[in-house]
């Protein structure tokens, strides 16, 4: 009962397509857990089920002991479930500061006014965007937008942070910076579920990895056992990767 997030037999069908089927997953408080799988495995759909974007066709989603299967995205946000998007979603005409202030205001439960802005600035300092606080979000580079997503996620004051490919499209030094940030966020006690294609990132950060394939959870375990798991190698990593790391 101590699990922060509990999925029991969760499925989601789109017409005849089973995007996610029968997933059981429990995430403990303070865990950093990696979700991997090939393209189209249903990873983003699973995040959408957790955040209320799509309701589950069958099964149950509980968060902090409460049944949240039917929640709306804004309710998930206020309950403490924050997410970043694979395709970044800023408010383009607003300043970077306003973007983060919006997160602090509506999800973080802060009152409208200067207080929310100073809290937002604090988060921008943390991710290293304080210098561009007053520029329009549309003008940021991709790496900066990914960091803006992180700052927004933090401003929502989450218990659970879902990171959907925050490192996709970044170069190696930008990834190192992102890794440092994510570690610092985890050190604050935020539970993190990270979707990632880069094994370097997952192996570096996560205490546990779960693998999704054709919508089903095919493996769950510590990083070392996952990279040796025959089904995972078959479905996702490929023979060569297993040989190299074995």
């Amino acid at each position: 009962m101590s699990a922060l997030l509990q999925l029991s037999g969760v499925s989601r069908h789109f017409g005849g397509l089973k995007a996610v089927s029968g997933v059981d997953l429990s995430v403990e408080r303070g865990e950093v857990i990696g979700l991997i799988g090939p393209n189209g495995a249903g990873k983003t759909t699973l995040v959408n089920l957790i955040t209320g974007v799509h309701p589950a066709t069958t099964g149950k989603v509980s968060f902090a002991g409460k049944d949240v299967t039917r929640q709306k995205p804004w309710q998930a946000a206020r309950r403490g479930i924050a997410r970043t998007f694979q395709i970044v979603q800023p408010f383009p005409e607003m300043t970077v500061l306003e973007n983060v202030a919006a997160a602090a205001l509506f999800a973080g439960g802060m009152a409208y006014g200067a207080h929310a802005e100073s809290a937002a600035l604090e988060h921008l300092r943390f991710v290293g965007l304080a210098d561009v606080a007053a520029t329009r979000a549309a003008t940021l580079t991709l790496a900066m937008r990914k960091r803006l997503e992180l700052a927004k996620g933090l401003a929502m004051n989450p218990q659970l942070l879902l990171l959907d490919e925050v490192n996709a499209g970044l170069n190696s030094s930008e990834i190192d910076h992102a890794l440092t940030l994510i570690r610092a966020i985890a050190a604050r006690g935020v539970t993190i579920l990270i979707i990632e294609h880069l094994m370097k990132v997952v192996l570096n950060l996560c205490s546990r990895i779960v693998v999704l394939h054709h919508g089903e959870l095919i493996a769950s375990g510590d990083p070392q056992s996952i990279v040796r798991d025959a089904r995972v190698v078959q479905a996702y990593l490929g023979r060569r990767y297993a040989d190299a790391s074995g």
């Binding site: 955040t51 974007v53 709306k72 995205p73 804004w74 946000a77 206020r78 997410r83 998007f85 979603q89 800023p90 408010f91 383009p92 919006a102 997160a103 509506f106 999800a107 973080g108 927004k152 929502m156």
Partner: peptide
Amino acid sequence: NESAADMLG
């Protein structure tokens, strides 16, 4: 961005 606003609470 209506869906982003939704996601933000």
